[in-house]
């Protein structure tokens, strides 16, 4: 049987190629290059999808599952390696969905890198791709549904954050503060991703690395704006709409994810809510996005404030995922 890790890595390779073509597309505006970029991303999604299926079967084997009906309980989303793969996969899938809906390939270069970062942070150094049997706490009917819904939620947040970047590039009145916020979001995300690789002892090194990374990416974004490329982006209103919809999708799934988590907790931990750090941080994320959804209706608060909330929500997602796992272990110590 072909190894699932190989499939994930091949898929990741396709994402990297696809991101490259999205960048080339952004600079050349040639339709066929855009088509190549989308096709590569789709191929990556299909290969990684196959990877999940292979891994699911492998997992069932390791767990000594005999009944086919029990297979769904052993969905391969139960450690950091697997969940980051799922996250990357979801980000690309949701992105491709929006690309089809809005018929604009300009932000592939903003969104696909989130998936690449998430997925490569596992394989650079960090997490073992080895298939392990399930500990008793994870043997549940709710596993598949809970993890999938949460990660669609996270991925929606990531796509919205990508759109927020495009939004700041597109707007004419981007200030130094906006640039700083973009830089900070990048540095924050990169810091936790690096930290999860190098572990807490090397936090200062990770900080420097994250700052360097964020500065380089911000410089590239600045260059993109200087070169006038944002004129090919959808309009400011359209970007606001896309951001709103990807947050709406993310919010609905995050809600379902939190609720399925509560149902599961009721059966595993003895209560639907225990103020475990993971639970609490997912609630914090939920509250921030709930605030975002209401900001729209306050006169004079729309526009940039929406993008700020979108990035703040994404920062909270990053902490819910990475930060809680690394710093605040609780009941939820697997992923």
């Amino acid at each position: 049987m072909i190894d699932s890790v190989t499939l994930f890595n091949i898929g990741l390779g396709f994402y990297i190629l696809s991101a490259l073509f999205y960048v080339i597309y952004a600079f050349t505006r040639k339709d066929f290059i855009g088509k190549i970029a989308s096709t590569l991303a789709w191929i990556g999604v299909i290969i990684q999808g196959a990877g999940f299926i292979v891994r699911g079967f492998h997992k069932a084997q390791v767990n000594e599952v005999t009944s086919l009906l029990e297979l769904y309980k052993y969905a391969p989303f139960t450690n950091m390696y697997e969940s980051l793969m799922l996250f990357g996969w979801m980000v690309v899938l949701i992105y491709l969905f929006f690309e089809r809906k809005y018929k604009n390939k300009m932000f592939g270069m903003f969104v696909i890198p989130f998936a690449i970062l998430a997925e490569s942070s596992t394989s650079i150094l960090g997490f073992s791709g080895e298939v392990q049997p399930l500990i008793p706490a994870l043997q549940s009917n709710w596993l598949l549904f809970h993890v999938i819904t949460c990660f669609i939620g996270y991925a929606g947040a990531a796509v919205a954050a990508g759109i927020a970047f495009a939004y700041f590039l597109k707007r004419e009145d981007t200030t130094k503060l906006d640039w700083f916020i973009m830089w900070f979001t990048l540095a924050f995300g990169a810091f936790w991703a690096f930290l999860s690789i190098y572990r807490l002892s090397a936090w200062f090194f990770c900080l420097i690395l994250a700052i360097a990374f964020a500065s380089v990416v911000t410089a590239i974004l600045w260059l993109i704006k200087k070169l006038g490329l944002p004129k090919y982006f959808p309009s400011v209103e359209q970007l606001e709409n896309i951001m709103y919809y990807s947050i709406a999708v993310g919010f609905v799934f995050l809600t379902i994810g939190i609720i399925t988590g509560a149902v599961w907790a009721k059966y595993a931990w003895g209560g639907y809510w225990s103020w475990d750090p993971k639970e609490t941080w997912s609630l914090i994320t939920w509250l921030i996005y709930a605030a975002y959804l209401h900001v729209k209706y306050i006169k004079g608060w729309a526009g940039k404030k929406l993008a700020y909330f979108s990035l703040l929500g994404f920062i909270s997602v990053i902490f819910t995922y990475y930060g809680v796992n690394l710093l605040l272990p609780g009941l939820h110590s697997y992923a």
């Binding site: 103020w275 750090p277 609490t280 941080w281 609630l283 914090i284 509250l287 921030i288 709930a290 605030a291 209401h294 900001v295 209706y297 306050i298 909270s316 809680v324 605040l328």
Partner: peptide
């Protein structure tokens, strides 16, 4: 007012952080 809703959501989010940082 919806402004109050946003403020309260935000305050709940911020104060919830405390409980994850200080041992409860």
């Amino acid at each position: 007012s919806i402004k109050l809703a946003v403020v309260l959501l935000f305050l709940l989010a911020v104060t919830s952080i405390i409980g994850t940082v200080i041992e409860q």
